[in-house]
Amino acid sequence: MASSQGTDADKSSLRGNYLAARAAIPVPTRRASDEAIRARLRELPVFAEARVVLTYVSVGAEVDTRALIEGLLAEGRRVAVPLTRPSAHTMSFHEIRSLDELRPGAHRIPEPPADSPALAVPDMVGSVCLVPGLVFDGAGHRVGYGGGYYDRFLPFYPGWKVAPARTTQMSSNPLPVGPHDVPVDYIVTEAATWSCW
């Protein structure tokens, strides 16, 4: 959905607009888009060569990552997912071996057990992080859900930042950018892959 908002649009109104637009996409259309996104992700060299894949665990109408996680684990690839600390608005990534390990955490999002070991920064060198968002622009800037978890994590992340997104999540206008916003390196949609650097 091409944004009719300019850079003066506030993130709250953008969130509302894009949440509504995403919810209106028929389930079969979402599934077809997500399957095409997974195929394009696997063609992206930085993804194919990544030592570890850090990824959000999709819920609701988000671009599906569960099928991707299951496929990667079946191939013996290393996968890590976020564990959040809501009081501090921070998160760490923890390696998993099955989606069955996950339990509802903050905001009812599936998370690994609190006592599972977190990846250290050296473990993330040569990795890819799949970054969620509601809307992205061509420069790789994003509007997320407003929790600030990725805004605090990404400045210290040493790997590639890749956003899986449907074409309806792409804005034709620049998004509002704050001083702590970190753009992604690539955006992968069902139709194309964009390099943002």
Score class of each variant (00 low, 15 high):
Pro164Thr: 02
Gly133Met: 01
Phe156Thr: 10
Gly159Leu: 06
Val143Cys: 07
Gly126Thr: 01
Pro158Lys: 00
Trp160Phe: 13
Gly140Ile: 05
Asn173Thr: 15
Leu130Ile: 08
Pro122Tyr: 15
Pro122Asn: 14
Asp123Gly: 13
Arg142Glu: 03
Thr167Glu: 13
Ser172Pro: 02
Lys161Gln: 09
Lys161Asp: 06
Met124Thr: 14
Gly147Cys: 11
Pro164Ile: 02
Asn173Val: 11
Pro122Met: 14
Pro122Thr: 13
Met170Thr: 11
Met124Pro: 08
Gly148Cys: 09
Lys161His: 10
Val121Ile: 12
Arg142His: 00
Leu134Ala: 03
Asp137Phe: 06
Pro132Ala: 08
Arg142Phe: 04
Phe136Glu: 02
Pro132Ser: 08
Asp123Trp: 10
Val143Gly: 06
Gly148Thr: 06
Arg142Pro: 05
Ala120Cys: 12
Gly159Thr: 10
Ala165Trp: 01
Ala163Gln: 03
Leu119Pro: 05
Thr167Phe: 09
Val143His: 03
Ala139Gly: 12
Leu134Ile: 10
Asp123Ser: 14
Thr168Ser: 14
Phe136Leu: 01
Ala139Ile: 04
Ala120Ser: 15
Val162Lys: 07
Val131Asn: 05
Met124Gly: 15
Arg152Cys: 02
Val143Ala: 08
Leu130Tyr: 07
Tyr145Asn: 14
Gly133Trp: 01
Gly133Cys: 05
Ser127Trp: 09
Gly126Asn: 13
Val128Asp: 11
Gly147Ile: 11
Phe136Arg: 00
Leu130Lys: 03
Ala163Ser: 09
Cys129Pro: 10
Tyr150Ser: 08
Val121Arg: 14
Leu134Pro: 05
Pro174Ala: 05
Ala165Thr: 01
Ala139Gln: 09
Val128Ala: 11
Pro164His: 00
Gly140Phe: 07
Trp160Asp: 13
His141Lys: 05
Pro155Ile: 08
Ala139His: 04
Gly146Ile: 04
Ser172Phe: 07
Pro164Leu: 05
Tyr149Val: 14
Gly144Thr: 04
Val162Arg: 03
Gly140Cys: 06
Tyr150Asp: 09
Trp160Gly: 08
Cys129Glu: 10
Arg152Phe: 05
Pro122Gln: 12
